[in-house]
Design a binder for these strands. Sequence first.
DNA 1: TTCAAAATGACACAAACGTGTCATTGACTT
DNA 2: AAGTCAATGACACGTTTGTGTCATTTTGAA
Lengths: 209, 209
Amino acid sequence: MKISVGIVEDNKDYRESLTWLLASEGEFTVDWTFDSAELALAHSTGVDVILLDINLPDMPGIEAIAHLKKKHPAVRIIMLTILEDDVNVVKSIENGADGYVLKKTNPLKIMEALRQVYEGGSPLTPSIAKQLLNIFKFNAPLPESDYRLTLREKEVLTLIVSGESTEDIANKLFISAETVRNHFRHIYEKLQVHTRSQAVSKAIKERIK
Amino acid sequence: MKISVGIVEDNKDYRESLTWLLASEGEFTVDWTFDSAELALAHSTGVDVILLDINLPDMPGIEAIAHLKKKHPAVRIIMLTILEDDVNVVKSIENGADGYVLKKTNPLKIMEALRQVYEGGSPLTPSIAKQLLNIFKFNAPLPESDYRLTLREKEVLTLIVSGESTEDIANKLFISAETVRNHFRHIYEKLQVHTRSQAVSKAIKERIK
DNA sequence: TTCAAAATGACACAAACGTGTCATTGACTT
DNA sequence: AAGTCAATGACACGTTTGTGTCATTTTGAA
């Protein structure tokens, strides 16, 4: 079973050499290529993977992701870029891109990337991965925001956050509702809040768990 | 300039073959190896990169990350794991790990990973990258989550989320508390929830605003 | 061993909340 | 002109919540 590929790339030389390259490998079929997002949106057919230039003439590649995914919900999209520290990299991932390759990348790696997304993975270059990781660390739980909740309290807080009622929480934990209310009391003290919704808000925003 | 490496891995065979492998390559020096987190924390010296088993006998590898980074602020850490869909993968990245390799990975790729972190990148396997991307998409604005709230309702919801009481909201909006409660009513209907904290939870998680 | 938390449970009471029902006004659609 | 919807306001009623006070048992650290 071959992997079917579509290409949206305005640089004619790059587009054609990529097409030739993939076609020459028995593993892939290039079903179509377009040089603009508009044409791709109008005429593309379903393929397994789309290679999408991040920098198209008529539309930011980032917007094109959403439109292409809407037209072909199952398609997986790999972005093609020249600059890897482009702000658009992270944005396009947030918008649903499944992977990333640099245009200068060794053709063998591009084929590897195609195989990887086809198998459900997400090929990223190490430096793009680095950017993602940094963002993660940035909104990761700070050791500072440790409210010294006990295990039980964290358990209860999780259930509060998921919207359970006092009674439901009591049943799930096999304790009385009064005890649950006692846990609330201590949680409120530690988080310095006075209502359930404040606790929920704080817990989610500060990623307490 | 060689890349200096430290290894924390409790499996003797794997540790030694890794050491031998890296040492035999002119590019790396293995400065030390330990079979437990405790020993590593006590006796490790500064190196460029630490290869750290995620599943150590004495301490979750995840905790070890923080301690090692505290002792050697400039060190970069690559996690070693057998399972790549371990929940710990994402956690360890949140805790500051710089990269990830599977133990079964081709030794050449492990060396490539060492080079990549040394150069400031983050080597990740495609499937780990996929997990990260999914979390990102989760955090990204969903076009679907439009509950057709009116402007006023969004305004009220924002205040609910920030933890204000009914009375406070009424005062801020210069309307009666009864009206605020009426807005709640409509918000609850549209979000399909029945309590304030459920509304807060849904609003934050689905980024309604 | 003693002492401090943590976890459990209970009672009470005022305040807040969720919801049913109803009403008025202004704005926009058809 | 009629009709829908948003925004405002009110009253009532039962439920839930927040909090004060107190008690028992288990657990872990000093």
